[in-house]
């Protein structure tokens, strides 16, 4: 479980990246952390991983304070940064030296992910392409079976088939005691993968809800016209009218479009907050 309590962070006290953030993330879910470039997604994830220290407030991850970087905390959390480093060794050597640190590492699971991602086994890690490296570290991270898995822009550098492989492999690795948090600005990559969304903008969490709740309160559909429709939060012209996000006053079912949701939230923060008020 991840619990943030009035967390503030910034690279200087005068200019905070986020202020008084509070949220609680539960295991058994894949959360998508969305935000514009520079909104502080990576910094937030790095605070959770214990790589950056908050200016105020607290972070509790599985009962540990990340800042202390205790071994028991680190063996139950895996962080995949946007820019990854892999040593100049083969896959087997990598697993041999790093896997023993993770008590729940599953070798068979790792080999299965390697196979699914179609990663060549004999190559040295440094000889791999950027996308292959990303897939390898993802495979390793999933096989560690840590209770918390943090990913920062994991689909950057992946080609289109690899992105669908990524969604398939990650969704299959979700367990009831596992929490996966994926930060990205490429919202389409998270389609059919996440079951809850967190959007940060202007130093604050705009929404933090399951997609089920989002679909209950907002409707994603096509409207012939949006000019005089007060319900509309965001609309985009399409071939058959307007693809729009509007208040779901009729409780109709619809599929959440993450990109449109993100645009609706960032363009109409006050109205969205009002719609999602407890």
């Amino acid at each position: 479980m991840i619990k943030l309590d009035r967390l503030s962070f910034g690279y200087s006290k005068q200019k905070l990246l986020f202020e008084n953030l509070s949220m609680q993330l539960e295991p058994g879910h894949i959360y998508g952390l969305l935000g514009k470039n520079g909104a502080g997604k990576s910094s937030l994830i790095r605070n959770m991983a214990g790589l950056l220290f908050p200016l105020s407030g607290t972070i509790d991850i599985n009962g540990f304070i990340p800042q202390k970087r205790l071994p028991d905390f680190l063996k139950d959390i895996f962080f995949i940064p946007e820019e990854i480093y892999l040593p100049s060794v083969t896959i087997d050597q990598y697993v041999k030296v790093l896997a023993p640190f993770y008590p729940r590492f599953d070798h068979e699971q790792f080999m299965s992910h390697i196979h699914q991602f179609d990663i060549p086994r004999k190559n040295k890690l440094t000889d791999m392409s950027y996308g292959q490296k990303k897939k390898l570290i993802t495979a390793f991270a999933l096989a560690t079976n840590t209770r918390v898995l943090l990913m920062d822009e994991p689909t950057n550098g992946l080609d289109i088939p690899s992105k669908s492989q990524f969604r398939k492999v990650v969704s299959s690795a979700l367990e009831p005691d596992r929490l996966i948090l994926i930060s990205t600005h490429q919202v389409r990559d998270l389609d059919n993968l996440i079951d809850a969304v967190i959007i940060i903008d202007n130093n604050q969490i705009m929404i933090q809800h399951s997609l089920e709740e989002v679909a209950e309160r907002l409707h994603f559909g096509t409207l012939p016209s949006v000019e005089f429709d007060n319900r509309v939060l965001y609309a985009e012209q399409s071939l058959r009218g307007y693809k729009a996000v509007f208040e779901n006053s009729d409780r109709e079912e619809s599929r959440v479009d993450l990109e449109h949701l993100f645009n609706a939230v960032t363009k109409n923060p006050d109205r969205v907050r009002h719609i999602f008020r407890p």
């Binding site: 991983a49 214990g50 790589l51 970087r69 205790l70 071994p71 028991d72 680190l74 063996k75 959390i77 895996f78 962080f79 940064p81 820019e83 990854i84 480093y85 892999l86 790093l98 640190f101 993770y102």
Partner: peptide, 16 residues
């Protein structure tokens, strides 16, 4: 010295 290598090292489950 670099962000990627430092991240990898700091996240290894060993004590400081």
């Amino acid at each position: 010295g670099t962000t990627d290598t430092a991240t990898a090292s700091l996240m290894v489950p060993a004590s400081q």
